[in-house]
Design a protein around this nucleic acid. Structure first.
Length: 581
RNA sequence: GACUCAGUAGCUCAGCUGGUAGAGCACAUCCCUUUUAAGGAUGGGGUCCUGGGUUCGAAUCCCAGCUGAGUCACCA
């Protein structure tokens, strides 16, 4: 048995009592809800006398019991509304049990109830539901954290991050702003989907289990397919599959995809995360920049009705268009070095001068990436496109039309972080093969993140892929930016956590104690005072102390058991030590 | 992976230089009987994260571990 807190025991007793009264605490029938709390509060007008036949359901979140009349708080999916409950209306006859016992005593905060009645305004001026009929729809057996709030000040807020993430359902019940974040997250996705569909692009699904984890540079999760007896990887990206579909003749395809990367976890990284990738044929990265800024602006408008969004202590303005800054310009602006045409050795020297650590496995691309990451990234708080990345760090990107050392790539930077990443896609199969081989060389040099070679993808390119631009955007990060959350865990319902430590170690059952000759009643007592297993019991040195503890517990808790003799206790300890297996 | 901080009642937290474990809310009983986080009174509730150590005595001091948060590193 798991030991229950006092409040849990009281609730279980209430449950039992409800059943005795003939009330099903978990009824099956549909409950005919016809309105939400928020709707009433927004639209009720006393002079219109509307909402006179309402039926709503939700969680009981507070009771102010005053005697023959009470007030309560009902919380449904839209918010809270006050209930007015009157004894003689709930119980019109002589029998006042339903009000006096069921409503006042057997209902608890957290129970799901349904009410029918009419809307009115109390003397205190609050829109409330005058309850004519009340039913229990689901009994709650655990006490909720009670959060109170007045004039925007929250009291006793439920703030323990570990518990909030582990028990998101509780978090969602008591912290309304959490729910709001997730509603906004879905609205972001819907807004994007709407825009893509308006453009005639096709939403598709591609494999999550991949034989070769391609399309990005990251350590994958690996699993095993039993029937095929082969390893499979959870995708780190879906890029190569979406491009195959462009080869297949679709003009535009997109996917909201869960990707998986077996790397560190922190405030901005979760092992599984959501990315939207879109590929459009006959477009280039310049077109994609316009498309992206319009999309982001549209998302901001859909969420906030304006383009400015608070983020920490900053205000980000998502109004399009965004500045285009080449990577070389960015580095020149923020370090003073012009790195155009510099060799690997020269770049390494520049890194040294800038105080950036390097190691021999780093190629040109990685070195430039380091300089940008260390010295430039953080400066781009307002949305900015960083464009024209060096070819070494962009193995899937078409070479720049004017400068073969660069690629046609952009990243959208917001608040000093990468939000989106896009290219004119590399569709020259021979160039692509060479780039993969270069990655392979990097990997042999020690870069464990260089890309794998996907032969089938190369074959697809050899059939010919139209010129295409593709873009990927981190949905979690976008949601963080758009909802003013600084941690990815706040925009994921169920962020990855370490397993919860086992709270209850294995206990010997009462039967096992009985087998050792200990009466069941005393076995419970012995377990209650900490000797939860026979193994622990046999370690007891002084049987006289145990004897006293047992008798003391019996007395204190008024169990009414007949106290054992000290020698009996001694024999129990000895019996516990015998091996009966 | 390194460092810093934290873990005490269902929730939020106090607990000093080591000496009987505290408050508010929640819960229970009673009183009141149209209230707005909190009407009044009384009461119950604890593996002080775990395991060692020091000590006559540890929530408190020391060591190790677990979990979480933060900073950095690694990494998109």
């Amino acid at each position: 048995m798991i030991s229950l807190s006092e409040q849990e025991i009281i609730r279980r007793n209430s449950l039992k009592r409800l059943r005795e009264l003939g009330i099903d605490p978990y009824p099956a029938a549909e409950y005919p809800v016809n309105v939400l709390a928020e709707e009433i509060k927004n639209n009720y007008k006393a002079d219109l006398n509307n909402y006179q036949e309402v039926c709503l359901a939700g969680r009981l979140m507070g009771q102010r019991i005053m005697g023959k009349a009470s007030f309560a708080e009902l919380q449904d999916s839209s918010g809270r509304i006050q209930l007015y409950v009157n004894r003689d209306e709930l119980c019109p006859g002589e029998d006042k049990t339903f009000y006096n016992e069921v409503f006042k005593k057997l209902l608890d905060i957290g129970d799901t109830i349904g009410v029918k009645g009419f809307v009115f305004i109390t003397q205190m001026g609050e829109i409330s539901v005058h309850v004519r009929e009340l039913v229990l729809l689901s009994k709650s057996l655990r006490p909720l954290p009670v959060v109170k709030e007045k004039d925007g000040v929250t009291y006793d807020a439920y703030t323990d991050m570990e518990q909030r993430y582990r028990m998101r359902y509780v978090d969602l019940i008591v912290n309304p702003h959490v729910k709001d974040t997730f509603v906004k997250r879905t609205r972001i996705i819907n807004t994007m989907r709407e825009m893509f569909n308006e453009n005639g692009y096709l939403e598709v699904e591609t494999p999550i289990l991949q034989p070769i984890p391609g399309g990005a540079a990251a350590r994958p999760f690996i699993t095993h397919h039993n029937t095929l007896d082969m390893p499979l990887y959870l995708r780190i990206a879906n890029e190569l599959y979406l491009k195959r579909l462009i080869v297949g003749g679709f003009d535009g395809v997109y996917e909201f995809a869960k990707d998986f990367r077996n790397e560190g976890m922190d405030r901005t990284h979760n092992p599984e995360f959501t990315v939207m990738e879109i590929y459009v044929a006959y477009k280039d990265y310049k077109w994609m920049m316009e498309f992206t800024e319009q999309m982001v602006e549209r998302v901001a408008l859909a969420l906030h009705g304006k383009t400015t969004v608070q983020l920490g202590d900053k205000v980000i303005d998502y109004k399009a268009p965004y500045p285009r800054v080449t990577m070389y310009e960015a580095i020149k602006t923020h370090t003073g070095y012009d790195i155009a045409g510099k060799s690997e050795t020269e770049l390494r020297e520049i890194c040294d001068k800038l105080g950036i650590e390097t190691d021999p496995s780093m190629g040109k691309g990685k070195l430039i990436d380091e300089i940008f990451g260390e010295k430039c990234e953080a400066h781009y708080v307002q949305p900015t496109f960083i464009i024209d990345y060096p070819v070494e760090m962009s193995p899937l990107t078409k070479k720049h039309r004017d400068n073969p050392g660069l690629t046609e790539r952009f990243e959208l930077m917001v608040n000093g972080k990468e939000l989106a990443n896009a290219y004119s896609e590399l569709n020259d199969p021979i160039d692509q093969r060479e780039r993969f081989e270069e990655q392979l060389r990097l990997s042999e040099k020690g870069d464990d993140e260089a890309m794998f070679i996907d032969q089938d993808f190369l074959r697809a390119l050899e059939y010919g892929m139209p010129p295409t631009s593709g873009m990927g955007i981190g949905i979690d990060r976008l949601t963080m930016f758009m909802t003013n959350n600084l941690s990815i865990q706040d925009v994921l319902f169920f962020p990855q956590m370490k397993p919860e430590p086992k709270r209850q170690e294995t206990e010997s059952s009462t039967e096992e104690f009985e087998a050792a000759g200990i009466p069941a009643g005393w076995a419970e007592v012995i377990k209650s005072i900490g000797y939860t297993t026979l193994g622990k019991l046999k370690e007891v040195d002084k049987h006289t102390k145990l004897h006293q503890d047992l008798c003391g517990y019996n007395k204190k808790n008024k169990l009414g058991l007949t106290n054992p003799l000290p020698d009996e206790v001694k024999s129990w300890i000895e019996a516990a030590g015998e091996d009966r297996s």
